[in-house]
């Protein structure tokens, strides 16, 4: 099925076309969300949100980009929204605990191990994912799309709605910041 034909069918509300879209791109959406939110259940929630949003707003898809680019864009937006809302809730729970309104302990999430990392590198990747969480949103998104999804700079720029040089700069800064974080965490542990 060609992409244009698929889009036409989706716009007409064809459920089989929607199922085709979900099964074709579910791993791509889930893997991207997982790289950003670093929790399997949260990533599944985000993936569901992405496809619900895609189904509801397919009318607005003008075909200026590939369907996969459009889905990547929704995934990044939804994942970053999810992280912002999680941060807000955590902050609110902390403030409540200061006033004794919330007795529940604010527990830090366990270390994240991406299921796709090769087994002998899993331990090292835990430190990398932890450092990744400290990056500014745009740097984090560019790094995940490039290193976890394996997109080239042009594809990342299409998803993020920016230029190739801007993506290169984001990735360079991301690597520099990650290196700084990793080195300082090594020194702290030693």
């Amino acid at each position: 099925m060609g992409e244009q034909e698929l889009v036409e069918l989706l716009k007409s509300g064809d459920e089989a076309a929607f199922k085709y879209m979900v099964t074709s791109w579910q791993d791509m959406v889930y893997n991207t969300a997982l790289g950003l939110v670093q929790n399997e259940m949260d990533a599944e929630d985000v993936a569901q949100d992405v496809f619900v949003k895609a189904w509801e707003s397919i009318e607005g898809f003008k075909g200026e980009s590939k369907l996969s680019t459009w889905l990547y864009r929704i995934t990044v937006t939804k994942s970053l929204d999810f992280l912002r809302s999680k941060k807000r809730k955590k902050r609110f729970a902390y403030v409540q605990s200061l006033f004794g309104l919330n007795d529940e302990l604010v527990v830090d999430p366990p270390d994240f191990v991406h299921p796709g990392v090769v087994s002998e590198k899993k331990q090292m990747s835990v430190a990398l994912f932890k450092a990744l969480n400290t990056l500014p949103e745009q740097q984090k998104a560019a790094f995940v799309l490039s290193r976890i999804e394996g997109l080239n700079h042009k594809e990342v720029s299409d998803v993020m709605g920016t230029t190739v040089p801007a993506v290169e700069s984001l990735l360079q800064r991301a690597k520099l910041n990650l290196r700084k974080k990793l080195e300082s965490s090594y020194r702290k542990d030693e």
């Binding site: 199922k19 979900v22 099964t23 579910q26 791993d27 791509m28 959406v29 889930y30 893997n31 997982l34 399997e40 990533a43 599944e44 993936a47 569901q48 496809f51 619900v52 189904w55 991406h114 299921p115 796709g116 990392v117 090769v118 590198k121 899993k122 090292m124 990747s125 430190a127 990398l128 450092a131 290193r147 976890i148 999804e149 690597k175 990650l178 290196r179 990793l182 080195e183 090594y186 020194r187 030693e190």
Partner: peptide, 29 residues
């Protein structure tokens, strides 16, 4: 040592594969 360790951590994603979604994702959506 710190530099080497950071390099190893940065390269830990090399050769990684894509995580696969729940097979019932479509039903849930």
């Amino acid at each position: 040592d710190a530099e080497r360790w950071a390099d190893d951590a940065l390269n830990s994603l090399d050769g990684m594969s894509r995580a696969t979604a729940n097979p019932f994702l479509y039903t849930k959506i």
